[in-house]
């Protein structure tokens, strides 16, 4: 017998994510689970609304630019980070839909 006999009355009426939801979330977490990427996200989280440039990120961390770009690519592929272009400058920022939960994660 489980200790709880009725489904929990949550605000959205589900107990746990279904299998595919859990797998998708696990995949996203694997993309986040790297100290360099955590640091990149912390920098973007602290940046202004326009985001940051690769140069700013490279300057802030002690990695060379190809390393930074490699980690940014993983975050971009997973949809955690997005980029925008103004003139010749490319800006990276946390995707709006993830901004709240990434900010929580970095607390």
């Amino acid at each position: 017998m489980p200790e709880f006999d009725a489904p929990a009355p949550t605000s959205h009426g589900h107990l746990a994510p279904d299998r595919s939801t859990a797998e998708n979330l696990a995949r996203m977490l694997r993309a986040l689970a790297d100290p360099t990427r955590i640091q990149l996200l912390a920098l973007m989280n602290g940046a202004g609304p326009e985001g940051t440039t690769v140069k700013e990120l490279t300057d802030a961390l002690t990695f060379r630019q190809p390393t930074i770009s490699h980690h940014l690519r993983i975050l971009l592929d997973e949809g955690i980070v997005c980029k925008s272009q103004t003139g010749r400058q490319t800006w990276y920022s946390i995707a709006a839909e993830h901004a709240g939960s990434i900010s929580d994660l970095l607390r």
């Binding site: 797998e23 696990a26 977490l29 986040l32 990427r37």
Partner: peptide
């Protein structure tokens, strides 16, 4: 950052998430 990444990695499993 390393500590946080480890914590995230532990959670990056469907069953643990569930």
């Amino acid at each position: 950052a390393l500590d946080r990444a480890r914590q995230v990695l532990v959670l990056a499993h469907p069953e643990r998430l569930s």
